[in-house]
Design a protein around this nucleic acid. Structure first.
Length: 272
DNA sequence: CAAGACTCCTGTCAGC
DNA sequence: TGCTGACAGGAGTCTT
């Protein structure tokens, strides 16, 4: 599933391939996504120029000279740039954005948890975006912030990490990985984390995300080629998907649990 | 307000 | 081999 690093890789690709281009046609084949695709989208964006491609959490923000697209890839969504001849659309190829100069941006999403929203006003004003917490790689996400925010919270720390009002863009994979690297048990009540633990956790989150984004950079080159979509990065995941296997640090058997309705894996020895 | 359950959807995989 | 059912998962929304 697209986590923040893949969304960022996608953002960079769109920025480098499509910035300044004029959108001349939109074809929507499936309007039933996470939310219905607005009926005015095709008309509203016709002949508009892509002025910027930004990211807020896992939302991609495409700013045109009039109007904006807010795109979320959900569980299984992807965007790819096709140059020249456009392959016949498959059943999950829901939207094609055709740009002048024979470039097509294709939105594909088998599970349709993704969203493509059009809005005239700045994306930041949208109700999905206006209550989001800080970016994990931004300056305001630091130990003091996390410490302050977790006081008197009794939910498991992992649940808070995945709450977009606390911090955006930390999905299940990276929550698991960051907690492992920080040596914190996912079930630990958030309010019981020390300042030092918060500092270690913030560092771990930033580190795993940065590493993944760097790895994603290597796939950017192929974005518009055959295997266009940035797939799963060849990351060495320490715990995610490895329940029952030995911890690479101490050899203990990694355990699995269910926290906040999500699969959770941790090392009972290294994480306390 | 906080915490947890529920929901959308389909590809994948285990079991028969 | 083919079918069935469980499961996974982002994140908004509903319930407690």
């Amino acid at each position: 599933m697209p986590e923040l690093p893949e969304v960022e890789t996608t953002r960079r690709a769109l920025h480098s391939y499509l910035l300044g281009d004029c959108l001349n046609h939109v074809e929507v084949r499936q309007r039933s996504l996470r939310w219905p695709v607005s009926a005015e989208l095709e008309q509203a964006l016709q002949a508009k120029i892509l002025k910027d491609v930004r990211r807020r959490g896992k939302y991609l923000l495409l700013d045109f000279n009039a109007g904006h697209l807010i795109i979320h890839l959900g569980m299984s969504g992807s965007l790819r740039v096709i140059q020249g001849q456009v392959p016949k659309a498959g059943v999950h190829d829901h939207i094609d954005f055709s740009f002048r100069g024979e470039k097509t941006l294709r939105f594909t999403d088998p599970r349709r948890f993704g969203a493509v929203l059009y809005q005239r006003a700045r994306p930041e004003t949208h109700s999905l975006l206006n209550r989001l917490g800080p970016e994990p790689l931004g300056e305001s996400f630091d130990a003091e912030y996390l410490y302050r925010l977790t006081r008197s919270r009794r939910a498991p720390i992992k649940a808070l990490l995945m709450d977009s009002r606390v911090v955006v863009g930390v999905g299940n994979i990276y929550a698991n990985e960051a907690l492992y690297h920080a040596g914190i048990r996912p079930s630990r009540r958030a309010g019981r984390l020390s300042r030092a633990a918060c500092a270690g956790l913030v560092d771990a989150i930033r580190r795993v995300l940065r590493e993944a984004i760097d790895a994603g950079g290597t796939t950017l080159r192929d974005f518009a080629a055959g295997e266009g979509r940035p797939g799963y990065f060849q990351l060495s995941l320490a715990v995610y998907g490895r329940a029952g296997q030995p911890c690479s640090h101490c050899g203990s058997t990694l355990k699995s649990a269910r926290i906040a309705q999500r699969g959770t894996v941790y090392c009972p020895h290294c994480q306390r």
